[in-house]
């Protein structure tokens, strides 16, 4: 590298070091794939190479199509799909924006927090006395920990602290209810 290049590189390094963190934009709240770094760090580490979406067996990992600063970062579209916790996406990420995780129930329960479940009791079948549904409980990979059923009609009760946010319950919730949504981490 010639002298001009070296001076330029040094100037850039100095500028990078003194740039105040305050200028940084607040990243949008989105549901990110499992093993993702915390918000902010993830958007900076991801190079948008779409390997995670390429290997996702349920195609729940998607890329936004609108023009925005995070148009190159993956998010989970849980409207009609869910994550099956295969952890393939964490294994193919080249920059460790998704930290590699083993496909072990306890590891996933400890490390993965994709989103938080929100139950609209006014729409839920058991909570409104319209039946004993239990679908969310049946599909939950962590029954009795992330969701338990209470009362004579087996109404679901979510425990946010134990939920990985895979969205299987949102996908399973009957058309007539649609009471569960997975929301991005606060």
């Amino acid at each position: 590298m010639n002298r001009r290049g070296l001076v330029g590189a040094l100037a850039a390094a100095v500028a990078l070091a003194v740039v105040p963190k305050k200028t940084r934009a607040e990243p949008q709240k989105k549901i990110r794939p499992p093993g993702a770094l915390p918000r902010g760090a993830f958007e900076q580490a991801c190079i948008g190479c779409f390997r995670c979406a390429e290997v996702c067996p349920t195609k729940v990992i998607r890329f936004p199509s609108v023009l925005s600063l995070d148009t190159a970062t993956p998010f989970l579209d849980m409207a009609d799909r869910a994550c099956v916790l295969c952890m393939k996406c964490t294994q193919v990420c080249p920059t460790d924006a998704l930290v590699e995780l083993k496909v072990e129930s306890e590891v996933i329960a400890r490390e993965v927090r994709m989103g938080v479940p929100k139950l609209n009791r006014a729409a839920c079948l058991p909570w409104t006395g319209r039946g004993i549904c239990r679908l969310c409980y049946q599909v939950c990979p962590y029954p009795d920990r992330a969701v338990e059923v209470v009362g004579p009609q087996k109404a679901p009760l979510f425990h946010v602290e134990a939920c990985v946010g895979c969205g299987l319950c949102e996908e399973a919730c009957p058309e007539t209810a649609r009471a569960i949504t997975i929301e991005p981490l606060p």
Partner: peptide
């Protein structure tokens, strides 16, 4: 690109680099 990206705290390179864009 690197400087503005780090100022904004976002990854700008995949947004302006044609091979990355075309691949995506």
């Amino acid at each position: 690109v690197l400087l503005v990206g780090s100022m904004l705290g976002v990854q700008l390179v995949p947004l302006v680099y044609p091979p990355a864009i075309i691949g995506r």
